[in-house]
């Protein structure tokens, strides 16, 4: 390869890297646009915004619908993620460690909710929710979201368990610890990052989910995405942009905390 040819390939490589960098930064544009339009004063969306006001934020703060929807989403998300994480850990232990029979089928079923269109689950779950008397309660959405959250902790914990040999646990047992002590003192501390990641993913899945909430909630258990969706279908105002910006800010902080916390933990 001649020198100029070499230089040509290097230039092409730099061009490709630059292009991808531009695409990745471009990915942030839609998010930034939402934030930008939230600070305008007009009651219709215009871009670029030509004035600055916190009017829509004031309206957002004073809006009880948002307050209760955020509260509902947090409660549903936390409860659903907790249920999904418990089920995910225990299933992963059964499949990876205990060599329980039927592990292939159980694994497939535990991953299935991640790929199954939510509308399919929603119309099947609706009659059951009615029949069990859960319809319109928080529990209906919590349990549905626990199902769609399950794949995340299941996959992350399976990954963590396969990343080290079960010798560690056998060693613990030869040293006198029973199965429960071994889980508490050895297995759990070792899979903890995966458990936290799985919980966060399940929580995020619940926070993002609309279709199941649409079918299973009542006005009093309305979730945040559902409220946003209803507002978008009703009338598009910058208040939605303000709400979305606040949500974005809070989620970003949560993600930042989730990525930074394990590092602080390690330093101590």
């Amino acid at each position: 390869m001649s020198v100029s040819e070499k230089r040509l390939w290097a230039a092409w490589s730099r061009f490709l890297t630059g292009l991808v960098g531009a695409i990745l930064i471009g990915f942030l544009v839609p998010i930034l646009v939402v934030v930008a339009v939230s600070f305008q004063s007009k009651s219709y969306l215009s871009f670029p915004p030509n004035d600055f006001s916190l009017r829509w934020y004031q309206q957002f703060i004073g809006n009880d619908d948002y307050r209760s929807a955020i509260l509902n989403s947090m409660m549903i998300g936390a409860s659903a993620a907790a249920l999904a994480t418990v089920a995910g850990i225990s299933t992963a232990l059964a499949v990876v460690r205990a060599g329980a029979p039927g592990s292939a089928i159980v694994s497939a079923l535990s991953i299935a909710p991640a790929v199954l269109p939510q509308i399919v689950l929603a119309i099947g779950l609706f009659p059951i929710s009615v029949w069990l008397g859960l319809q319109g309660t928080l529990w209906a959405v919590i349990l549905a979201h626990a199902v769609i959250g399950l794949p995340f902790p299941f996959i992350t914990v399976c990954g963590a368990l396969t990343s080290y040999s079960n010798r560690i646990e056998i060693a613990s047992m030869t040293l006198g610890a029973n199965a429960f002590q071994t889980f508490r003192l050895i297995t759990f501390p070792m899979i903890r990052p995966a458990v936290i990641a799985g919980f966060i993913f399940a929580f995020a899945a619940s926070l993002d989910e609309l279709v199941l909430a649409l079918f299973l909630s009542s006005p009093s258990t309305r979730t945040l995405p559902l409220l946003l969706w209803e507002q978008l279908n009703f009338q598009v105002t910058p208040e939605i942009a303000a709400a979305a910006s606040v949500i974005l800010a809070v989620t970003s902080l949560l993600i930042l905390a989730a990525t930074l916390l394990p590092r602080l933990d390690k330093d101590n």
Binding site: F27, P30, L228, V236
Partner: peptide, 15 residues
Amino acid sequence: PFWASTVIRSFAWMI
């Protein structure tokens, strides 16, 4: 962007 909800991302493209 993955962490922003689908509703918000769709809304962004509406704008």
